[in-house]
Amino acid sequence: MLYPTYTRRSDPFAVMRSMLRDFERTSPGRATQPVFPAVNVWQGDEAVAITAELPGVDPADIDISVKENVLTLSGERKAPGVPEGARWHRNERGFGKFARSVRLPFVAAEDKVEARMTNGVLRIVIGRPEEDKPRKIEIKAA
């Protein structure tokens, strides 16, 4: 299990709370469906980035929308075209529609969202608005 790393710095109980929540989820009777796609979230002073592995998904079949501070990623994994009379030996990959929302730490401006897909890995970079960027505060001599 992976936990958000940034919570460890400020709030010592965040990880414990997160673990408790996780325990509730994995307890019997509340079996959850795995979520697709898995995302990694990157943070920096200038931007926030979201990466996701979407093998076999055509970039044209992916919809990315931003509403205030929520980014939604949706689309469809299409099953490969197989000639008639073909026999399946193995079918491990999944297909179908998917949707995923990620809450951003700020309200994103539409023109600051950039998405790129390389070899089945989607990368969305969202620029931080000026007012959200960290500012250096000068200390004045008394």
């Binding site: 093998p55 197989v82 009379g85």
Partner: peptide
């Protein structure tokens, strides 16, 4: 990598998911 394997009349087709591989 997750793999789909299909047997057709001329042979075998394998489809492997390898995101991030050129």
């Amino acid at each position: 990598p997750l793999t789909d394997i299909v047997e057709t009349t001329d042979g075998v087709t394998l489809m492997l998911e390898m995101p991030g591989v050129a």
